[in-house]
């Protein structure tokens, strides 16, 4: 195999370690910065909730809050996998198209052969796309943005082919998207439970396991990771397969929620997820990010969407506000990094 060092992406690691127990003075400072960033995220979320509660009598009701969670569920599920990818300096922008394609395959097969085969088809479709992405990135060493941009375009078209360009209805698939369990007088939708499970799984994977530790190393310094004997290709490949699994799950939730699949199903979800992941503290330069940060960020975005609708603000403002948040997060990230650099020179 070729040994021209490491990955397509180069450059040195960025700040934000996964699990170094903080006790040293410097690492205390560094972790305090991270803690503040996390606090800032939670603070923004709380402030938004307070603001919308004051301005609208409908916001702080259990029905509405559950709606907020439901609206964030699909993005949160794919956002969890996206966080893992960004930590290892990879990205997958094909997830929206993949959700559309897996949904289309699901709908068509379910219509003709029954629901169980539809589920199998959706999983196979999502895994096929993940496999194509992984092979192109690992075997042919194509940059992950370019690879997944190509699959984004191709599978948007493919799903239109599968559906003959028309929406397909899916009847009687309620469980993932519409079933609710009563917990303490509040009806919790299955989708929200799935979201929390996915976040928990990715949390454990990234913070507590050898795999997670190696993914942070790969993102922070791919050359060092390779020289240390970490199997970069295998670990990154696993992350794309995990992304495929979350796509399969997300596509079934979407189909179940909407009861139909259209040629635009899943469109722009990659951008919503990526926005959440970056507002959540991950960096395209790798080595940084956490699923908890992503979860909080996606809740911020969901609350914002919901609140602006309740206040009957023109919907264009939702997009503007999302962009402002993203810009704010990126600037905040850059400021934090400068600070770290200054500290290093002390």
């Amino acid at each position: 195999m070729n040994t021209r060092d490491a990955d397509p992406g180069r450059g040195n690691g960025e700040r934000g370690s996964p699990g170094a127990p903080a006790a040293g003075v410097m690492s205390k400072l560094v972790s305090r910065v991270r803690f503040t960033a996390m606090q800032a995220r939670v603070g923004v979320l709380v402030l938004l909730c307070v603001f919308f509660t004051i301005r609208s009598p409908f916001f702080f009701t259990s029905t509405n809050l559950v709606n907020v969670l439901v609206n964030g569920a699909v993005i949160g599920i794919i956002g969890s996998a996206m966080t893992l990818l960004l930590v290892a300096r990879q990205v997958d922008v094909s997830v929206g198209s993949a959700i559309g394609f897996a949904g289309a395959v699901f709908a068509v097969i379910a219509r003709d052969y029954g629901m169980a085969w539809g589920v199998v088809g959706a999983i196979a479709a999502a895994m096929a796309i993940a496999g194509i992405n992984a092979v192109a990135i690992i075997k042919f060493r194509v940059n992950s943005i370019l690879t997944t941009l190509a699959t984004l375009v191709a599978f948007r078209g493919a799903s239109k082919l599968v559906m003959d360009g028309r929406a397909v209805r899916v009847e009687g698939f309620r469980f993932l998207g519409r079933t609710r369990f009563e917990v303490g007088g509040i009806e919790i939708p299955v989708a929200v439970i799935v979201l929390l499970l996915v976040v928990a799984v990715f949390y454990v994977l990234m913070r507590l396991t050898k795999y997670g530790q190696q993914m942070y190393a790969i993102g922070a310094n791919p050359q060092a990771a390779r020289l240390a004997g970490i199997p970069l290709e295998r670990q990154v490949g696993i992350a794309f397969v995990l992304t495929g699994a979350t796509v399969a799950l997300a596509s079934m939730i979407v189909v179940s929620q909407v009861g139909a699949v259209s040629p635009t199903t899943g469109e722009r979800m990659e951008f919503l997820a990526l926005t959440g992941v970056i507002v959540g503290g991950a960096s395209l330069y790798g080595g940084r990010g956490s699923v908890i940060g992503t979860l909080v960020a996606i809740l911020i975005l969901a609350v914002l969407d919901n609140g602006l609708v309740l206040l009957q603000v023109q919907s264009f403002w939702q997009e503007v506000s999302r962009g402002v948040l993203l810009l704010g997060a990126v600037v905040f990230d850059q400021l934090g990094r400068r600070e770290a650099e200054v500290r290093m020179d002390v």
Binding site: S27, A217, I230, G287
Partner: peptide, 18 residues
């Protein structure tokens, strides 16, 4: 050097041999 900047000393010692 091949160290991971964002890790502490134990994590770097055990890099790839966790």
């Amino acid at each position: 050097l091949a160290l991971v900047d964002i890790f502490d000393i134990p994590a770097n010692f055990y890099l790839g041999r966790e």
